[in-house]
């Protein structure tokens, strides 16, 4: 498993969030999640302008055999989506924390990030799953 970058925060359901310098938050799914899903073949991106949050799925990643909802780790408005995933969903398989990002949101309240798991806690969580 690849190293988890230290500037990420995680939802238990395997989405990551990264606070960028401009105050926006980039979102993707973890390397562990992509490994579990296997080869991804389609990503349904959210609409720019959509209000999203951890309560409702806002994107869908589909591997060959399964579709999985993706949740926004915190509340906010989608301001950008990774349209490179339209033709290259496998970017999530090859670079989950980099080129495989899914969308960027403008947070309603940045403090919500403090409630997410830090990399160490997330690493412990998935280690527990693999036992």
């Amino acid at each position: 498993m690849s190293e988890i970058p230290g500037d990420l925060k995680f939802l238990k359901s395997h989405e990551w969030a990264r606070l960028e310098d401009d105050g926006l938050v980039r979102v993707g799914i973890s390397d562990h999640a992509q490994q579990q899903l296997g080869d991804l073949v389609y990503v349904e991106l959210p609409e720019v302008g959509a209000q999203v949050g951890p309560d409702n799925g806002c994107a869908v990643v589909e591997s060959v055999k399964a579709a999985s909802d993706v949740y926004a780790p915190i509340h906010g408005e989608v301001v950008e989506v990774n349209s490179a995933l339209d033709d290259g969903p496998e970017l999530i398989n090859t670079d989950a924390y980099g080129e495989g990002w899914i969308f960027v949101l403008r947070p309603d309240n940045k403090a919500e990030l403090d409630d997410l798991l830090d990399p160490e806690s997330y690493a412990e969580l998935i280690e527990g799953e693999e036992d």
Partner: peptide, 9 residues
């Protein structure tokens, strides 16, 4: 997200 490796069969 739910990590369903294999939804149907």
């Amino acid at each position: 997200m739910q990590l369903h490796a294999w939804l149907e069969t």
